[in-house]
Structure formats: C-alpha cells, structure tokens
C-alpha cells in the first residue's frame, strides 16, 4: 500500500503538469492571432492588440509563458476575467457551491436508487426488477441529458405546472447569501418559504442529472453483486447457516464495494460533463453556465481556468478511487 501510494503520488505532479500544459496550449488553438481576436477582431487598433498581447503575456517566448502560467497557478492565481476584470478564482468560488449542490443532490438521489435497483436485480436474477434495472441502465446511458431535461421541463413545468424551472430561486427573491447555495442559505436564514422554493427549483435539474448515477450505479452494483453472490465463500456462509440478509448486506456488500469504488471513477467525468449541459438548460447559476457564457463571450481566461479546475478535480478523484481500493481490500493494503 505504501509503495502504491508513493507511486501514485509521484505520478500525480506529472499528470497535473500535463493537464496545465493542455489548458495552457488551448489558447494557441485559437485560429489566427489570439491577441487580435481578444482585442476585438481585425478592426481593433494595433495599440490595443499590442496591449492585449502584453496583458496575455503572448509577447514572451512560449516556455517563459508556460512557466509564468504555472507559477501563477501555484500561487492560486487563475487569471483575470477579460470582461468583469475580476479574479477568475473569486468568480469560481462564487459559482462552485451552486454546482456542487446540484451534483450532490443528483448523487444523493441517484446512488441509493441505483444501488437498490442493482442489488435487487442481482439477488433476483432474470426477475422483473432485473429486467427493469437493465432497461433503466441502458436508457440512462443513451438518453442525452439535455434532451431529458427538456422532456422533464415540458412534462412537469409546462404541462403539469408542478415544478418551476430556471435558476435557483424565483426571480426577485432575496435571501441573505452566506454559502452561495440557495437551499442552505434559506435554511440558515430560517426562511421556510425560501427553502421550499429553492428545493422546488432544485428538483428538476437534480432529477435529470441523477439519471447518470442511477444508470451507472445500477449497472455496476448488479455486476458486482451477481459476481459475489456466486463466489465460493458465499456458499460457505450458506452452509454455515448464516441468514440470507446478513449474507447479502454484509458478506456480499463488503466484497462488492471493491469493484463499486471504481464506479466513482466513471461517474465523476459523466457528472461533470452532464452537469454543464443541464445547468445550461435550467439556467442553473453554476460553473457550467459560467463556462458556457465565457465560451460564448470568448473570455479565454475563464475557459482555461474552469477547464483546469474540472480536470484537476477529476485527476484527484481518480487518485482517491485508486487509494480507497487499497483501503477496502486487506489483500492490496498489505501487499502493494
């Protein structure tokens, strides 16, 4: 385990450097002269273009630019928004909690449902629930989230009028902001009406995003449980009269956790990618809409920073997945 830990930790900076290189080079993917484009296009006065070039550091040789970029990152400087002129790091911190609240809600909804479906499917192989679980998994992985979002909006907002959509709160609602998450802020402020409204606004985007964890968890849980249920040590447990519920929920669950942990490695990129589009459909004021408005407004500093943040999150999460694998399995824990 220690060796595994050491190797993974040694590789981490290399991967992170690579990731920064990609986001750094992304600006050079812009066709033509980035400074000219960012200064306003071909009609921009040459002085403005030069000023922009200096501001972006594009007048420096490439390696110098990269070193400057990385050393700024190390100091927590993610650059400045070309439009608002505010530090990107500050703007990200304002948006991050909102995005996380949506993702967390989706995982909280999706994980138990997916796990329940998957486990029941494995215990009753080829039964009704098994077929349902597999259909859900198949559809959940095939329906594009942005379309599903539109369907739910059509059904629950337009047709039935049960749930609102668009933003975290109704327009012109004021809540004292502390955490940046409307739901939490309303609770902290003791604002019951605001809390209910925030919850109602969260419902549709969270359910849409939850389809991903439901489908993936159901698929993984079913596979892992079915494999474990067929293993010899489960037969041993049965031979010794261990009750079936103990077998499923303790013997099998613990062993099935191992492959299930890898689920998070698959789940995270799917959630990060899916959340961007879902935020756009629901005008959810998180990182996804932030990224998209930056893309549309050609605010490259913001695009760079948000992409970097998401990629780093993803790399760190995969590291945690690998390490928890070792923690859960005593065989790996001691060997590695």
């Amino acid at each position: 385990m220690k060796r595994l830990l050491r190797r993974r930790l040694l590789l981490l900076p290399i991967t992170l450097l690579g990731v920064t290189a990609v986001t750094f080079l992304a600006i050079h993917l812009i066709p033509g002269d980035p400074a000219e484009i960012l200064a306003g296009g071909p009609l921009a006065p040459p002085e403005a273009v030069d000023a922009m070039r200096v501001r972006l550091g594009l007048d420096q040789p490439l390696p110098v630019q990269y070193i400057t970029y990385v050393s700024r990152l190390v100091h927590g400087d993610l650059g400045t928004s070309l439009f608002t002129g505010r530090p990107v790091a500050t703007e990200i911190m304002e948006r991050l909690p909102t995005s996380l609240s949506l993702t967390a809600a989706a995982v909280l909804i999706g994980l138990p449902i997916g796990a329940g479906l998957g486990v029941l499917a494995a215990v009753r192989r080829d039964g009704l629930i098994d077929h349902a679980a597999r259909t859900v998994a198949l559809l959940g992985l095939s329906l594009p989230s942005f379309w599903l979002a539109l369907l739910l909006v059509w059904a629950f907002s337009v047709k039935l009028g049960w749930l609102p959509f668009g933003g975290e709160l109704p327009a012109f609602t004021e809540i004292e902001r502390r955490t940046g998450v409307a739901l939490v802020d309303a609770m902290l402020a003791g604002d019951v009406g605001g809390f209910v409204e925030a919850l109602r606004h969260l419902a549709l985007p969270a359910i849409t995003l939850a389809v991903i964890p439901i489908a993936l968890t159901a698929r993984y849980a079913r596979g892992a449980f079915a494999e474990q249920l067929a293993s010899p040590h489960i037969r041993t447990a049965r031979a010794f009269g261990i009750p079936e519920r103990v077998i499923v929920w303790r013997y099998v669950a613990r062993n099935a956790m191992l492959p299930l942990v890898t689920l998070f490695g698959v789940l995270l990129p799917a959630l990060l990618g899916g959340a961007v589009l879902i935020e756009v459909v629901f005008s959810w004021p998180g990182l996804g809409t932030y990224l998209l408005s930056a893309i549309q407004g050609r605010d490259y500093a913001v695009v760079q920073a948000v992409t970097l943040l998401l990629a780093v999150l993803y790399v760190l999460a995969s590291l945690v997945v690998d390490l928890s694998y070792g923690l859960l399995d005593p065989r790996i824990r001691e060997r590695g």
Binding site: S231, P232, H233, Y251, R254, N255, L258, L328, P330, R331
Partner: peptide, 8 residues
Amino acid sequence: MSSLNPVA
C-alpha cells in the same frame, strides 16, 4: 482460500 470471506 476461496471458501473463506477474503475481506473478513
């Protein structure tokens, strides 16, 4: 080996 629970 396989008849005992590997993680208990």
